[in-house]
Design a binder for these strands. Structure first.
Length: 407
DNA sequence: TAGGCCATCTGGTCCT
DNA sequence: AGGACCAGATGGCCTA
């Protein structure tokens, strides 16, 4: 009935996926064509209609009504002509003003009433036509939804670039991505204002808000093993693989290349030699000067940081900034000092704050310990924690702040 | 081969 | 009545 050739598929798909439904023309043409050329597949359970350019695609369509299809090909042809007739764009007649003196037309009631187009066959045809149009609308609606997801994918960093996130991964990564950026800005704002960073709370917040961890296989695709760690080859890859607090027990880690901030399964790095990076269990994004990387991103020459001073010096800022445009020396110094302070006090804060939030915190009053595994310090998947949406309210209600930082 | 992902069909519900 | 939205069912494709 429907050709599976690619060209035919395109023609067919163009007709049914356009903004204005081409369902009538498409199905009509198909029915007419099938009546004349391709013999119908007379199976009760399956029409054999293929709507996709795949091999041996079998779609059930109107199984319940299919008995009527066996009546005759002429019936189908007549139906197609009916559809054409119903949708023929004939010029509309101008309405004449009603004559008040004209007697009203009398309609029969009850058994005496004669209705038009109400025979079982015609009712079936009308029903089928509605179903086809509904299917067409549903297809278009899903296509629009997929287009929106594609646009979302375009603004999300992925590595490698040609890796396509699945739908659920796109949504989860977008959630993590937005949250990581907002938390980073918030933390930088605290640092700039002289307050100690609230990173411990940030990590616990994210755990409470929850994002279901993606499958390990997907993480393996994006997160290169830390084989370069300790080699000081300057690769960003030794930034990857930290989806939890770093080995030093902190949510921050200072490296020779910059600093890392871990917020749950998202790691944000502020690099001191040419770019910043966001690593998630669902993907990795780089924000850097293209010249900083070789083709395979591993052959770049490593440059130790040139800024060894513990205090920020405005006079040599431009000089220290090197390429200037992609690393903010001032922010680095702020981070560095903040990390030193935070590292000294974080162990006690971590324990106390964790327990407090776990049982008593009024902002995040989670008391259902069934959702929490104390042995692994993790929240069970599909639990209340992983489905909580309150972070969005906090996010939207947060007072906008000006952050003098480059991310 | 099982499982994940996806497109599509389908019927139900709600709204205009 | 018809459209939008939703969720379940189904089957194809791909990969581990």
């Amino acid at each position: 009935m429907f050709s599976t050739d690619f060209e035919d598929y395109c023609d067919f798909n163009d007709s049914i996926c356009s903004n204005d439904s081409g369902i009538d023309r498409s199905y009509t043409d198909s029915f007419v064509t099938s009546a004349h050329s391709t013999p119908l597949k007379h199976e009760i359970t399956d029409l054999g209609i293929s709507l996709t350019p795949t091999k041996d695609v079998r779609r059930k369509l109107f199984n319940d009504d299919y008995d009527s299809f066996q009546d005759s090909v002429d019936d189908i042809k007549a139906f197609a002509e009916d559809v054409q007739t119903m949708n023929t764009s004939t010029p509309k007649k101008e309405k004449k003003p009603k004559d008040p003196n004209k007697p009203k037309r009398k309609y029969a009631n009850g058994k005496n009433r004669i209705t038009r187009c109400k025979s079982p066959t015609q009712l079936m045809k009308i029903k089928r036509n509605r179903r086809m149009k509904a299917n067409d609308r549903e297809r278009n609606r899903m296509h629009m939804l997929n287009e929106a997801l594609d646009r979302l994918r375009c603004v999300l960093p992925t590595f490698p670039e040609d890796t396509k996130l699945t739908k659920i991964e796109t949504l989860r990564f977008a959630h993590n991505y937005i949250f990581a950026l907002s938390q980073t800005l918030e933390s930088l704002d605290n640092i700039n204002s002289g307050q100690p960073p609230d990173f411990n709370l940030t990590y616990d917040k994210l755990q409470s808000y929850g994002e279901k961890a993606t499958k390990d296989a997907f993480r393996d695709i994006f997160s290169v093993p830390n084989k370069t760690e300790g080699n000081n080859d300057g690769s960003y890859r030794n930034f990857q693989g930290f989806s939890r607090p770093f080995p030093n027990g902190s949510n921050f880690m200072q490296t020779t290349e910059g600093v890392l901030i871990n917020v749950g399964n998202v790691t944000v790095s502020v690099n001191n030699k040419g770019g910043n990076c966001i690593t998630s269990t669902t993907g990795t994004g780089f924000f850097t000067h293209p010249s900083s990387f070789g083709e395979d991103m591993t052959q770049q020459t490593y440059h130790y940081q040139r800024y060894e001073t513990s205090t920020y010096d405005e006079s040599n800022y431009e000089e220290n900034n090197g390429n200037g445009a992609y690393f903010n020396q001032k922010n680095y110094e702020i981070f560095k000092n903040a990390f030193d302070t935070a590292a000294k006090s974080r162990k006690i804060e971590k324990t106390e704050e964790y327990n407090y939030m776990k049982y008593n915190n009024s902002i995040y009053p989670y008391t259902d310990t069934n959702c929490y595994n104390g042995n692994t310090n993790e929240y069970f998947q599909n639990s209340y924690y992983y489905n909580d949406q309150r972070c969005y309210r906090n996010f939207y209600n947060r007072v906008p702040s000006v952050v003098n930082a480059q991310i």
